[in-house]
């Protein structure tokens, strides 16, 4: 059986591991068709590599560009990347610790110092918070209602909402004369 083309391509790049490498070599030694395919790969690679300017042409401005960069960044008085351009990285752990610390400080502030009207009036005299235990009282005067406090309709709709099936009959009523 002949070699898979993808395998041949890897072999050509020298990326094939043993034992496939030596198996491929063995196969190529006696299979003319695969040898032709291998040659074809080489031709394509050579055609690609032969395209484009030679090394000298490619490197024509190598030194010019370097001195340009050197002048820009490393010359006396050249600009260093400022503080704000510096890349700062934090790990997740340290970020969580920092966040937890902030929360503790924030809550701790309230626990330790609290807030009192005196402090507020020191800072903003015209705006003192009056809401305090001394001057806040409950205005709602709802006494718990007895069963008499509800109308029949309210009782029925409540029972209905709880899923009770209510049957009502009226006994002992005397017809009005």
């Amino acid at each position: 059986m002949c070699i898979d083309e993808a395998l041949l391509s890897s072999y050509f790049d020298g990326e094939l591991k043993e034992p496939y490498k030596s198996q491929t070599e063995e196969h190529l030694a006696h299979c003319a068709a695969c040898r032709a395919r291998y040659e074809r790969l080489r031709t394509i690679s050579e055609e690609l590599r032969s395209d484009g300017p030679d090394e000298a042409e490619l490197n024509r401005n190598r030194d010019v560009i370097f001195s340009r960069l050197e002048k820009k960044f490393f010359a006396e008085g050249g600009r260093k990347p400022g503080f704000w351009r510096k890349k700062v990285e934090f790990g997740l752990g340290s970020m969580i610790t920092a966040a937890a610390g902030l929360v503790i400080v924030f809550i701790g502030g309230f626990v330790l110092f609290g807030t009192s009207p005196e402090q507020t009036s020191d800072i903003i005299p015209s705006y003192t918070i009056q809401a305090d235990s001394q001057n806040v009282r409950f205005v709602s005067s709802d006494e718990p209602r007895g069963l008499d406090g509800y109308s029949l309709e309210e009782i029925l709709s409540y029972l209905d909402s709880r899923g009770y099936n209510v049957d009502i009959s009226i006994k002992g009523l005397q017809p009005v004369e």
Binding site: D51, G52, L58, N59, R62, I65, F66, F74
Partner: peptide, 19 residues
């Protein structure tokens, strides 16, 4: 470091970029 990287990478970068 900058010089070292420049010396070693310039030609491969320019070749890739050109193509």
């Amino acid at each position: 470091s900058f010089r070292l990287v420049y010396e070693n990478c310039y030609s491969v970068l320019i070749r890739i970029c050109y193509h």
